[in-house]
Write a protein that binds this DNA or RNA. Structure first.
Lengths: 242, 242
DNA sequence: TAGCACCTATAGCAACGCTATATGAACTGC
DNA sequence: GCAGTTCATATAGCGTTGCTATAGGTGCTA
């Protein structure tokens, strides 16, 4: 049993590692298993990937492309928060479909050696949340919202993976998901699924902020700062006449 | 260097394993390290604990007692949901104080071999949530609420552990915590004051404008003006914390 | 053809989790 | 008081792990 084809050894190693990870059923995957399945000897592996973790990282990178592709396919809707829901579900599905790969990506957390994958996933979610923020649907800064939602998303997925298949209750995921999205969204977004979305933009936001600032006596800026700030705000508000 | 005392070998093994786990700094702890530090040979370990995992489980059980003790100390207040908040914080603190131990307890998730600890922690939280349910403060069954909250709690803690110490932002924890508690609580409980999202409209508007500005490349302000403007905006966006 | 990267294989090291077997010590029944 | 049994520990080593020092082959450029 080997992964031949005429593929070069590097590709065969990747394919073998991915297959073993996907089918290992929770037990560890050894370099010897991988090299044997790839029809290659140990030094080849270490020549191409440095070490075992390097190989797995490469597999994960491929898996992450798939993950991202899934996330992006779901993204075109005009409702950012609805897209976040789909991202969440896609994340969970990815974890349940390929638990071994997922554990390598999100489970093996170690201080000082955090996989870049997590940061990428975070950025992906932040990007989407940014759209929500633009249309005034967000209660907190997108970056923090992304971290918070992703943390809960990972926690739920890990818990579901840890459960035996027949006992898995996706209700857990749905409930946690909605709780997190609800928590970061504004009332406006909650009432109206879509909001005005399209035309929001800088001007609308500036006008809203302008009104809110003048009504609230915020003390985050000094009076001189505030004066200048309001002047700029005014400039922005009046700028795009379109 | 060994853990002598006149303690029996079993206790010495436990102590040695706990110490190595606490100081391992993320790298794996081997049975040989443990037995050497305990001044014992391998079969003794396997006689008492079956295998490596059995030993670590025993260490974890001791650590869990400490964890539970912390949770129970916090519990006597009359407001169950407030107690849940403290349980959450205690959980996070436990994870940050003893990350290695925590990773063994909650991080090494594998299908089919889920540590009993997780179930125990779940039961502990469910017990507390039950009190909330009795007094009509709960929106969903306590069991599901416990699973959901714990999943998010673990996710947040893992994410915080994965971050380098100086970058750790406990706001992430507080925000996620409140979101989860809010989601499972009834309106009655929310009015009671334990949970409050309370962002002013200024903050919401500032967040929206911030996102809109960064997305639109507006040219109404010079780059130096824009820089300062964004800095102030950031200040406003981050001003209100729970 | 000579030289030079690049790639792969042979062989093996040190460390790992774990165990078959044996030996001492402590208790039990008579 | 002694044989039998059980518990607890040690000696020695098995099979596997991640990884590498070294060497050889292959194809390209000069």
């Amino acid at each position: 049993m080997s992964i031949d084809g005429q593929l070069p050894p590097k590709a065969r190693l990747l394919r073998a590692a991915a297959e073993l990870l996907a089918n290992s059923g929770g037990s560890a995957v050894s370099t010897r298993q991988v090299t044997q399945l790839a029809g290659v000897t140990a030094p080849t592996l270490y020549h191409h990937f440095g070490d075992k973790e390097g190989l797995f990282d490469a597999v994960v990178a491929a898996g992450f492309d798939e993950y991202v592709a899934g996330e992006r396919d779901f993204a075109p809707s005009g409702q950012p928060l609805e897209d976040i829901r789909r991202m969440w579900d896609n994340h969970v599905q990815f974890g349940l479909k390929q638990p071994e790969l997922y554990l390598v990506m999100f489970g093996n957390i170690r201080p000082e050696s955090r996989p870049a994958i997590v940061a990428d996933a975070e950025a992906l979610m932040e990007e989407m949340l940014n759209k929500a923020a633009v249309s005034g649907q967000l209660n907190v800064p997108p970056k923090e919202a992304a971290r918070s939602i992703l943390a809960a998303n990972v926690g739920v997925t890990l818990m579901l993976i840890a459960e035996k298949v027949p006992e898995r209750n996706l209700e857990l995921s749905a409930m946690t998901r909605d709780a997190m999205i609800f928590a970061v969204s504004t009332e406006q977004a909650r009432d109206n699924g879509s909001v005005d979305s399209g035309k929001s933009s800088v001007v609308v936001a500036a006008i809203a902020l302008n009104a809110a600032l003048q009504a609230s006596h915020s003390d985050q800026l000094s009076s001189s700062e505030l004066k200048l700030f309001l002047e700029w705000l005014h400039r922005i508000s009046n700028s795009s006449t379109s």
